[in-house]
Design a protein around this nucleic acid. Structure first.
Length: 315
DNA sequence: GGGCAGGTGTAAT
DNA sequence: ATTACACCTGCC
């Protein structure tokens, strides 16, 4: 029996957890075909499921865990928040066509420390390897949890890690950045919770002073860790989507795209970014990928008639 | 086997 | 302020 259903509103669990903002969730197929997700949040190992009945927490079965999950999923402000935000975004002509493919994508309330390190690791990297590196860091340096899982390492543990340990996590040339960032946080030069109380601009400036943190990683930390929803991280996918959908495929600099996003989406830019990112990942992907064979190469505002190809939900 | 993957640091203009 | 380049590593 699945436990009581949570008030998820319009949240789409699969889309949210696979939208590139977190790297610690895996998927499995339940006996009845529904997708179940397992992930480490803080010191808890969550098992979550979403089907026709709604969203349910399979484990841990405690009231505290339920509260923590609701908070983590960004539902603390109320289950209707996502629907309201999407209604607002839909007033944008382009997003109105994007949203049918991406609706339900929420923004998680993650630990800014974990977000910071995860996105330092993400630089010039690919998603499977990012997940693998993070998993190895947890296994090597994190607190053991139930079920053979491990918590994300603390700043102190990561700062004190032997270079060989970090090398075994396949961090490559990012290892010194991870180490330096961990030291800065561990010794208090950066107080991530204090950053949460600063203005987004000041917090961003501070983050940019951390080794391995450029504009993209700083904006990801602002958005996913500090919940500054005006932040607009521009990665290659978002850049691609904005150029295609808003500039007729003409190249734009990251600077131009940031300025565009700020003016066009304002305080909801972060949400717009999530939808554009998901859209690009599922529909603007060049070349063949996945079991379905070749993907459509057609780009731009055409090609939005058929249902999107169901990506196998394996993280 | 060269290129690429959710960028950043550095050295040049 | 902008541009070019190298970069661990696994995968195609």
């Amino acid at each position: 029996m699945t436990g009581p259903v949570l008030q998820a509103g319009a949240l789409d669990l699969a889309r949210t957890l696979s939208s590139g903002q977190t790297f610690r969730w895996t998927w499995s197929r339940a006996a009845d075909g529904a997708a179940e997700a397992m992930g480490v949040v803080g010191r808890r190992v969550f098992r979550v499921r979403q089907d026709e009945r709604g969203l349910s927490l399979l484990a841990p079965e405690t009231a505290e865990a339920r509260t923590a999950l609701v908070s983590y999923l960004g539902l603390a402000a109320g289950a209707g928040t996502i629907a309201r935000i999407e209604a607002s975004l839909a007033t944008d002509r382009v997003l109105a066509h994007v949203l049918p493919h991406t609706q339900g994508t929420g923004i998680l309330a993650q630990d800014p420390w974990e977000v910071l390190i995860s996105f330092i690791v993400s630089a010039n990297n690919n998603i499977p390897k990012i997940s693998q590196s993070i998993e190895r860091m947890a296994r090597a340096l994190g607190e053991p949890l139930d079920g053979g899982a491990f918590a994300f390492p603390t700043p102190e543990r990561l700062a004190g890690a032997h270079p060989r340990t970090l090398a075994a996590c396949l961090l490559g040339y990012r290892a010194p950045y991870v180490r330096a960032a961990a030291r800065i946080v561990a010794d208090g030069r950066t107080d991530l919770h204090a950053l949460a109380r600063m203005s987004p601009g000041d917090a961003r400036d501070h983050l940019l002073g951390i080794p391995g943190v450029g504009e993209k990683v700083a904006d990801c930390t602002l958005l996913f860790g500090l919940r500054h929803t005006a932040a607009f991280p521009v990665d290659v996918w978002v850049q691609r989507a904005v150029e295609r959908l808003y500039f007729r495929g003409r190249p734009r600099t990251v600077r131009q795209i940031q300025g565009f996003a700020r003016g066009r989406f304002g305080p909801l830019a972060g949400y717009a970014q999530q939808h554009l990112f998901c859209y690009a990942r599922t529909r603007l992907r060049p070349g063949p990928a996945g079991p379905g064979g070749t993907r459509s190469r057609s780009l731009g505002s055409e090609g939005r008639r058929s249902a999107r190809p169901r990506r196998s939900a394996i993280a």
